[in-house]
């Protein structure tokens, strides 16, 4: 059992000093070759992705990028992708499928960007296509929730064979602020929202949304990043080794079943279909 309350974990998960996607890429991979652009209109730098070697083996790595300094945050739009980011992710995933590379994603976003341009260019459609594509891939996909897993913008990189989550990361249907403002018309009740939303790694492990919780150093990931890199590295090695023994069709089927089963036990089939 962790010492932090859900509300404290939300703070830890959002802490700017916490290791982000770029840090994991730099520390866990070699030979990273960044791939940019959606080939339609622009490059969305709030999604960082490319090909790299993981223990010598080429993989496709994709993650949300928040940035640490104010300048970076502005450049990466605080880790809130638009449709171009999700289309870039799709492009990279299709290439991974084509070349038979495993995919590793890092999830860390407050959510997809709620902006005018984003809507104009089909934010909803871009996320929907990500979900559909990921569900059908025949390569191993492992997702790691490293910080903030906010809403559909997080899930868009999260349809994986295995979803891992750092001990103090959070993952939820909406930010606690948004949740409180929708349900209670009062965003200031976000603390209360944190405690009812079951958004911690431990909660999500027990509801079957994530498959493994990765330990963080006492005080949180930012206090000893090297220790966290070692933990995540070991976990990814283990998962990829296990998934490497599964054939292509079974990988897609297993991933489909994982998400097909979400909430299914609450509604047992009763042979209602003809």
């Amino acid at each position: 059992m962790s010492v932090y309350t859900p509300e404290q974990k939300v703070k830890l998960a959002r802490y700017p000093g916490r290791p982000g996607t770029a840090d994991y890429i730099q520390n866990l991979f070699t030979d990273f070759f960044e791939q940019r652009g959606d080939r339609q209109c622009r490059d969305d730098s709030s999604i960082l992705g490319g090909v790299a070697r993981f223990h010598g083996r080429p993989v496709t790595v994709i993650g949300h990028r928040k940035g640490r300094t104010m300048e970076e945050k502005l450049r990466f739009n605080f880790g809130m992708p638009g449709p171009e980011g999700y289309r870039k992710a799709q492009r990279l995933m299709r290439q991974a499928e084509k070349f038979g590379r495993p995919i590793i994603t890092f999830i860390d976003t407050p959510g997809a960007y709620p902006g005018r341009d984003a809507e104009e260019r089909g934010q909803g459609e871009a996320i929907a296509q990500c979900l559909a594509l990921m569900s059908s891939l025949t390569v191993p996909v492992v997702a790691v929730v490293i910080g903030e897993g906010g809403s559909g913008g997080a899930l868009a990189l999260g349809v994986a064979n295995r979803v891992l989550m750092l001990e103090n990361a959070v993952y939820s249907v909406l930010s606690p602020e948004g949740f409180a403002s929708i349900l209670w018309k009062d965003a200031s009740r976000s603390g209360e929202a944190c405690s009812v939303m079951k958004l911690t790694a431990q909660d999500l492990r027990s509801s079957g949304v994530v498959q493994a919780v990765l330990k963080e150093p006492e005080g949180g990931a930012h206090t000893d990043p090297q220790a966290v890199y070692r933990t995540v590295d070991a976990a990814l090695r283990r998962e990829l080794a296990a998934l490497g023994r599964v054939n292509k069709r079974s990988l897609a089927r297993q991933r489909y079943q994982l998400f097909r089963s979400m909430g299914q036990d609450l509604h047992p089939a009763r042979g209602a279909a003809v």
């Binding site: 929907a128 079951k198 509801s207």
Partner: peptide, 22 residues
């Protein structure tokens, strides 16, 4: 997504998108 059911509501997005894709 239905807020009152939390993360499992979010997961219905993946579930329905996958079913449509299939």
């Amino acid at each position: 997504a239905r807020m009152q059911e939390g993360i499992l509501s979010l997961m219905q997005m993946a579930k329905t998108a996958a079913a449509i894709q299939r």
